[in-house]
Nucleic acid binder design. Structure first.
Lengths: 147, 147
DNA sequence: GCAGATGTTTGATGACCTCAAGTAACTCGA
DNA sequence: TCGAGTTACTTGAGGTCATCAAACATCTGC
């Protein structure tokens, strides 16, 4: 409301708030899509990390949470048949979590059903997508390292 | 890993994943800052919404959650003296939630202590900030409407 | 071989979240 | 004005997520 120039440099706080708004909206989109498949957002997030076999501990590290927490989440995913615990051949303490075929299919659908996000990204042309990608890619390392 | 051109147009899925990564990192930064003040991220989020008096129902709408949920969150914030329930003069059913001075101060500090986010945004020069702001501003309406 | 570190699980506790139900207060038309 | 329907808030039950402490099995290096 203060300045009027159409493309004035945004105040840092405004940019911060906008970034937060985008983040929440996308998260909500994800949670909604996950819910349609009977998954909580946390369960879907775990499923999304499982490209290959991953030990419980690795999962906990990725999620930045206590290992004991992962036990329950994987329990519930396993009960639904979306995930499997496999013994690690090299270390008998370790249990590797693997997504089942159904698990992979479900998370694929969740991603594809994030309509709000897809629609939003579709409003950008190719140059804009590239620009956005470049900018976000620059933010990422700093943002993730200092957390 | 597949293509090698430095500024090739990103696949939609890559952009989606990058956006998600940025969102989680920023959320984690927020949660960490909130925790330093003894707040859960949800509590901090509520505090962040309280620019003026807001009825419980309004809060629930903003948070996209059940009204009964807000009762407990506000209870805990009120117990810490960060928030106050005030009767609405126009409608005796309504309780308006207002941040106390201490509440406003705490949330101000939380925002200012989101170091990862601040550092990341500081890596952008003015033109880049402006570009990012413009792009995100374009995404926002679509992203929020379709949620 | 043994002390210490690591991976997983269990149990206790608390916050968050939803749904169903209850109470109080508002609204609007007959 | 009065009563039916709606709305705001709370309570209680039940489930998920998150932490910590403790137990247990297994690995590691000396």
């Amino acid at each position: 409301m203060s300045t009027t120039a159409p493309h004035a440099a945004p105040a840092k706080l405004q940019l911060l708030e906008l970034l937060a708004a985008i983040g929440t909206a996308q998260w909500r989109d994800f949670a909604t899509a996950a819910a349609r498949h009977g998954l909580t957002s946390t369960q879907a997030k775990v499923l999304a990390q499982l490209n290959g076999p991953l030990p419980m501990r690795g999962l906990a590290t990725l999620l930045v949470c206590d290992a004991s927490n992962v036990t329950g989440i994987v329990d519930r995913l396993e009960a639904r048949g979306l995930v499997r615990r496999e013994p690690d051949p090299a270390d008998r303490r370790v249990k590797n979590v693997v997504a089942t075929d159904e698990g992979r299919e479900v998370i694929r659908r969740v991603r594809e059903e994030m309509q709000a996000t897809h629609s939003a990204l579709d409003t950008l042309d190719e140059a804009e997508s590239t620009a956005l990608y470049g900018l976000l890619e620059r933010l990422r390392p700093t943002l993730e390292r200092r957390a």
